[in-house]
Design a protein around this nucleic acid. Sequence first.
DNA 1: TTGTAAGCGTTATCAG
DNA 2: CTGATAACGCTTACAA
Lengths: 346, 346
Amino acid sequence: MKKNVTLKQIAKELGVSVSTVSKSLRDNEEIGLETRQKIQAFAKMYNYKPNSIALNLRNKSTNSIAIILPQIVNHFFTNVVQGIESEANRRNYNVIIAVSNDSFEKEVLNMETLVNGSIDGFILSVAKETMKRGDYHHFNETISQGVPIVMFDREVQEVNCDKVVIDDVQGAKEATQKLLKTGCKRIVFITTEDFVSVGNLRLKGYKEALIESQIEIDDALIIKVKDQFSSDEIEKFIFQELEKLIQIYPDVDGLIGVNEFYTITAANYFKKKGSKIPGEVSIIAFSDGDLPKYSYPSLTAVRQHGREMGEAAAKLLLDKLEGITPEEEYQTIVIETELKERESTK
Amino acid sequence: MKKNVTLKQIAKELGVSVSTVSKSLRDNEEIGLETRQKIQAFAKMYNYKPNSIALNLRNKSTNSIAIILPQIVNHFFTNVVQGIESEANRRNYNVIIAVSNDSFEKEVLNMETLVNGSIDGFILSVAKETMKRGDYHHFNETISQGVPIVMFDREVQEVNCDKVVIDDVQGAKEATQKLLKTGCKRIVFITTEDFVSVGNLRLKGYKEALIESQIEIDDALIIKVKDQFSSDEIEKFIFQELEKLIQIYPDVDGLIGVNEFYTITAANYFKKKGSKIPGEVSIIAFSDGDLPKYSYPSLTAVRQHGREMGEAAAKLLLDKLEGITPEEEYQTIVIETELKERESTK
DNA sequence: TTGTAAGCGTTATCAG
DNA sequence: CTGATAACGCTTACAA
């Protein structure tokens, strides 16, 4: 095991000073061509790589940004990561990812361990638990220490920073309108509990579309799934609720779910019942993932353009880091959704 | 924006030396109780956090490990990450994730940017492109620089390091045996091209099971999907191949796919044809993911115990980092698979 | 009990 | 053209 060579070692071997080596390797004209080339050759031979920790310490900048994701296995987040990476790599930044698992504590921990020098800025989507608690001190502290944050998707109004969000209201509205236009009269909406901003906004869009079409909003058609449910409990709960609903309204003919799991579970309920999709029930999911695509029949989905979001978020962050945008000026960029029509709607 | 306080600043404010501050904050008995407490209080007030970069540089150790994943949106990898995180956090290590996107170049780049001081060791699953090229210099160089690597799932024999693998052969064998036992006579096997070790091993298990049951291996039943296909092309290809196959063998009654996408696509083919699952065709997927679970009917799957793999991998790495295991002693841990029976088999 | 100084690997500044 | 020195923030012998 040969540890990485350092400037010092090279200098000693070659009988020159450390600064000469440093300059030579950065191809500084100050150093005589001959010496420079000799040193460069030697360094290449020994596979010299500058120690990035030392560089970071010296430069007070790491050229790295961190993404903190609530969950890692989420197609939408993945797309966002790809967008961030493409923009960041283009601008010579390194990207590392940490996962909060939707836990407040892990979110705080992750930020604390990274904030002290390891990275220059954060791009994050807020953990559910954090939203529930409403405790945002870690965000504000980070920002006030000069480490900028860009929030995407799940953001909190209480924190003043750059944001990239989806037009959730509009997306849900369009989905609802699509169902209405194809003749649906009684549309079920499956969403999360109220404290999740995204679920709330989507519910708002659903309601707006109904109101604009002069359809009365019926709270019985809105199913709210508890956050702490396991996936088995979610299935059980959704099946139960739909069962009850169908008793009251046998003529349910449309359904929108705020994520792919809720939606596909509901779709499976109707498949089990033998209902025709989209003949008897039309279904739309919010999702960038594979579930709707590989489902049979495949599900129409509201796509969230994760990649674009990521690019926008990275742009905001890097512009701030590089002083292109003034420090105290925050923007919120809204990314439009797209209705990807598949087989589950007419 | 108030930057983080440094020892120096605290020292100046309090009119003591930097080392006094340092010692006090580490609660060193050397320093008088009074001074110590005063300094500690002051530090707390100013929210002092040691600069981790400086610590890393000094200690030549970061207490961080990096995971390099071929893809991020993969339920199996996610489970592995969780396993790694739980073991690493328990032992006070931080985990960061980087993604190679199955690209050789990105894999090399990621390792190079991280290896110079940012992390103490790697846990990784080899990118497909790397396996195809057979170029493993970056692994060997990293190891010879004293940064240990643990490979999981996709490993290469040519590199001498700790490994955690799945018993792919056994998993595929059991899946095949399950189908045989429930009466299947003609089992299709959908796999990757030969250079992907995992696909190959699974194919081997399939063949072994057939041979042991004295069934002749029919290469026509083995579909190999090209790696560079997009997901639409995969669907088209699998549909085509199955169509051809059904012409020759209308009595195909079983199918195993080496990943969830291939399998679910094949399942959709049979659904489209109107075949009963599992009445006419029984299906088994290799997967830890959601697709088989949420499919209708849900698919029986070979589970890979990602979490355990992650824990085992982290244990191997950390034991090496902490000198618990000798440096030049490499182990390969084999994790058993589990057949999760669902609705797609009898 | 407290402080000084060296060192981790690098670069920028200034002097030779 | 080359080299010594200081600095980034921290720890730790060793002095005082």
